[in-house]
Each structure stands twice: as C-alpha cells, then as structure tokens.
Design a protein around this nucleic acid. Structure first.
Lengths: 266, 266
DNA sequence: CAGTGGTCTAGACCACACT
DNA sequence: GTGTGGTCTAGACCACTGC
C-alpha cells in the first residue's frame, strides 16, 4: 500500500488545490495523475494484475495512492485510451488482452474488400518454420539487442477460407521467449499475441508499421499462390510491450487482390 | 446566449449532481457534456469560429451554456482529441486548421525511408488537369451524391526534390466547391486542404484509407518516372468534414522505393 | 441490494503567455 | 498583473451489473 506520491511535507492533510508535490523543482514537473499513471503502469509491468484481470476500484486505488478518486480517474482514463486498460461500467476496470474476441485482431488491418471480418471465417494459421539463431545487425538494432544475440525466427502463412493471404516472418528476442517451439505455436488455436501473454507474460501494447509495395519473389509467390512478380503489400511491424520496449519485428507480405489494408486518419 | 441544455424544470438553480436533464426519457440518454460537444460542433459547422480562430474561454462557454466549467472542459477535451480543436495553455483554445506548419501534412503518411520529413524539402505540386463532369456511380455512392451529379475531377503529381512520388486523382462534390478552377489550384502554394478551408469553408476532419499493392499502368508509370508494371501503393481516401459528411474521394498511387507509408497501431 | 464506473458541480490553486 | 488552460479535491447523484 501507501507510497504516497511525493509530498514535500507529508503533514499536509488539508492540502487542497495545487499540485500536491514539490512544485517547482526546476527540471521535472509532473502532475499527480501522471505519477499515478506511472505507478499503475509499473504494477501492470510487474504482473500484479494480469491480462483479463480486474484491477482495484478507483476508490481503492485512490486510497492506496493517497489521492482523490478524480485523480485516479484521470490516470485510468489515459491508460484506457492507450488501450492498456478497459473500463466496463458497473463491472470494473480490466487489464486489456489480445485473447478476447473483441480485441482479437486489433493489430491486423487487412480486411476483405466486400463483406465483414466475420463472414470470411477465422484465420487459418500454418507455421512454416521456427528457428533459433543469432540476430543479424538490422534485426538486433530494431529489437534493441546486440548483433549475434539469440533470437527466434518464425515463418508462417495465414489463409482465409482456404486462400492464403499473408506470409510473414517474425523475429523475437530469445530471452523473453525462451522455450518457444514450433509445436507450441502449431498447437495453439488463438491469436499469437494471446499466446505470448499466457505463455510468456509478454503483452504487445503498440506497434509501428512501414508499408511498401513490392513484387512477389519466388518463395512468397509459391506460398501465396500467385505468380512471381505479382504486386504485394510489404508490411514491416515493430511491436512494443510496456515502456516502449521493442519485442517483435515482423515482416509480412499481404495479397491485396480481394483485400485491403484499412487505415483511419484523424 | 442561453440555450440552457434541456432542463425539465428550468427553475432548478441548486440542481447539483445528477445529469441535469430529463433523466430517463427512455430511448435517448446523453450526458450534458455530450450535448455541449454537439453545440460547439454546431458553432464550428456554422462558421461562428473559423479555422485558426480562438474560441471563447471555458469560463465564457460555461456561462453561455449554463453548465459548470468542468463540463465544458470535458466537451472540449474530446473535441481536442478528435483534432477539431487545439488547446494552448495560457493562450486559449483554437479551431484546428490544415494551414499551420505543424499540422500541414497531417493526412500524408508517406515518409522518406531515411531522414526526416523536413530534410527532403517541401512537396512540389503540379496540377495535371481539373475537369467538371458528372459523377460516375461509384464516385457518387462514396460521396453520398446521386449518379450524374456535378463533380470536379482533379489530377495532380507530387514530387520531392525533383523526384515524383505521388500521382493522385481527386473527386470533389460540385456544390461546395463551386468556382474551383485549375488556376486557383495551380497558383496556390500551400496544402490543398488549407485552400479548401480559406476559399470554400470546407474543413477536412477525418479520413479513411484503403491501401493495396498494384502494378503501374502506362499513364502512372510515365508520370512517376518508373517502368510499367512497377509495384505501387494504391491509396484510396475518403475524407469527411464535420458530421461525417464525405467531401473528397482521392485515389493516389505512391512510389515506395525510397519512401514508405507509416502507420501507428495501438 | 451493494459495488463499480460515469457525470456534474464548486471552488482552489498552479503553470503559462502576454502585456 | 490579468487571463487562459491545467490540476486537484470533495461530495453528490446517476447508470449499469450482478448478487
């Protein structure tokens, strides 16, 4: 409990208004709700509350952190808009997860040109290979590792209704994913990010994608069932866990003859 | 002023707490701040405050709408996260605009592979053609017009440092853009959406893009300086103004040899 | 019914920008 | 200094969920 967030004089009971902490300490100023946000984040990271769990009520957290409920509320609000937490009125606030139907394909932006996500049926996953090797320079750089550090390389194909749509190659840091094998991956029915959560305690929180148009090489053409030279979408994704720690590098090739990559701008 | 937001008994001076309006009128329930949001939106739409303008202070708006400052604040908060308003501490709250350097390329996601947006220099715009014609069925459908309604078709090329990168075709509804000519477009130095704001009072608020990989046809290949068959990114954008009214359909072809389309997932 | 998140208010004070 | 947005509190009541 406790850990009251940084008060200069802890004996300030009626300290209404103001920031409630050391005010003008030159370089850093951070509002209370930001500090609360960091504390909650730390608990998430430490695994105090796991994906899918309900976290303590706003009132409880307010008591724990010695702030008002409104301040906790603002912290949770931001974590909820960042998709780290999910609020459910009347029930509570929960740690977001990739395991639920609703958020299952949160990071997959490839949609059918006609119809909805649902009526194309579930994604059919096939693991092509899973190897343990030493990180090439570029992979290491992006995953914030050193060249030659142990990494896992996974290659897989996704299909919808029997038609292959995506072939992708994943690079994962060896440390956090120790024990991952092709059997683990192949036996799993659900989304890969859900497996990462349950088996390795790694939760993907955000990602950045770089998209290009390329021509299919022989390998990709075979796996996707198109002619060599066929135009494909190249999607390079760097996914991050808590604290902006890079945890996965993924390079996918998407067929876009009957599907498209959807993006919202605002 | 006034327009107090829907009170059952207007004689409720000390009506603290609660929603402040007709509570359980079965079908619709909308919190006060939502109603305020709608009212502000209406003023934006009506042009009471124009892009770049400062809107009244939270305190003033609270008085005008007969609610507390906190309620106005929450309404403005949401409008700010939707990028309709911009808050500037110490200065005021302003109507967002595409005319400022900071938000100039807000909807353009094509970035150089190496280096920053700045060190590639400004976009060089060349209008290829601007025609007035009757909307084809598909264009009409997307712009919520009737087939055959008057529309404008604009074709242009964007280049960076002399190298063409984008060729795109725009469809605009004839009504709101009455008077738009190739001269207007060609003479303009700034971003097109800024011109739309100042000359036609049309502000683009959000957009949806559908992205595919395609092969360059003869026409595009010539304009972009690549060989026919070269893989290009096809970006189809539908842009909306206030109230989700579609106002522009744009189909662009992007060269992605030295650039990529960037997207953030969360 | 109790518990949780959601809304609203009123008032205080801080941080920032301009004059 | 004045005016703006930003933070924080305390307390009230509403809306939803599940026992």
């Amino acid at each position: 409990m406790a850990t009251p967030p940084l008060n200069p004089t802890d004996a300030a009971p009626a300290d209404t208004g103001g920031t409630g902490m050391f005010e003008n300490t030159a370089p850093a100023f951070s509002p209370l709700y930001q500090q609360i946000k960091t504390l909650i984040l730390r608990s998430l990271q430490a695994g105090e509350w796991k994906p899918g769990d309900m976290i303590p009520s706003e009132f409880d957290l307010a008591a724990r952190f010695r702030v008002s409920q409104g301040t906790v509320r603002k912290a949770i609000d931001e974590l909820a808009t960042d998709n780290l937490l999910v609020r459910r009125q009347g029930k509570g606030t929960f740690v977001a997860t990739h395991a639920e139907a609703h958020t299952q394909y949160r990071f997959l932006r490839l949609l059918p040109d006609a119809g909805t996500l649902e009526d194309q049926g579930p994604a059919e996953r096939r693991i092509v290979e899973c190897r343990r090797l030493r990180a090439p320079a570029e992979v290491a750089r992006q995953l914030a590792l050193r060249t030659g550090d142990p990494v896992l390389q996974v290659k897989r194909v996704l299909a919808f209704a029997g038609t292959p749509a995506i072939v992708e190659e994943l690079w994962l840091p060896g440390g956090p994913f120790k024990g991952l094998t092709i059997e683990t991956l192949s036996d799993d029915k659900g989304p890969m990010y859900a497996l990462f959560e349950t088996q390795f305690g790694v939760r993907m929180v955000r990602a950045v994608e770089k998209i290009k148009a390329v021509s299919a090489d022989e390998d990709a053409a075979t796996l996707l069932g198109v002619a060599a030279g066929y135009p494909l979408l190249s999607v390079e994704r760097l996914a991050f866990t808590y604290n902006d720690e890079p945890m996965e590098l993924r390079r996918g090739l998407y067929r876009t003859d009957a599907r498209h990559y959807r993006n919202e701008l605002s």
